[in-house]
């Protein structure tokens, strides 16, 4: 059951993912060109063949990912309520992750050049045991989330709650 507070990632996230994939394909395509035009004559042909197959398979995977972006976006949602953060992913394989707010130890944000351009942040939420991420949220939302979590962390002081 998806929470009624669940919200989509900002629409700009889709553009970032598409650009990410396109840049990846560009790099891989360049590698393919260099491999065949410059190194083709010097390296043994079996190695060239294996590398070609590997590169083409990776490019295929990136294209697959590119085509699936609408699917990922459509079913990737997150919800924040009074007690927990919930993350939803996938339709054919549906995953719901729940983290109690009071168990969160740290919230890290990372922002590459692309995310920076679109005013988005990647949010990494860390508990004592594991971590998980929300791929892209609004800078404003990231700030609000941080403040909420600092508030929650104040209550969760281990020694005070002992026994």
């Amino acid at each position: 059951m998806i929470s009624k507070y669940a919200q989509y990632l900002p629409k700009r996230a889709k553009i970032v993912w598409v650009l990410d994939d396109l840049i990846g394909m560009l790099v891989l395509g360049l590698a393919l060109l260099i491999l065949n035009l410059c190194l083709g004559a010097q390296w043994p042909s079996t190695i060239i063949m294996v590398l070609n197959i590997m590169l083409i398979v990776i490019i295929g995977l990136v294209i697959g990912h590119l085509l699936l972006i609408p699917y990922y976006y459509r079913f990737h949602r997150y919800a924040l309520d009074d007690t927990a953060i919930l993350i939803y992913k996938g339709f054919f394989l549906r995953k719901t992750e729940a983290i109690p707010l009071n168990r969160i130890q740290n919230v890290d944000t990372t922002q590459g050049p692309l995310l920076q351009f679109f005013h988005l942040k990647r949010l990494v939420i860390v508990t004592a045991a594991h971590s998980f991420s929300i791929a892209a949220v609004d800078e404003q939302v990231a700030q609000t989330l941080r403040e909420r979590l600092i508030l929650a962390a104040r209550q969760a002081r281990e020694v005070n709650n002992d026994d």
Binding site: R94, K95, T96, I99, R103, T127
Partner: peptide, 13 residues
């Protein structure tokens, strides 16, 4: 309860 760090539910179609 307070030692549980998180939970995850999965369901295939």
């Amino acid at each position: 309860r307070d030692k549980i760090q998180g939970a995850k539910a999965t369901q295939s179609c």
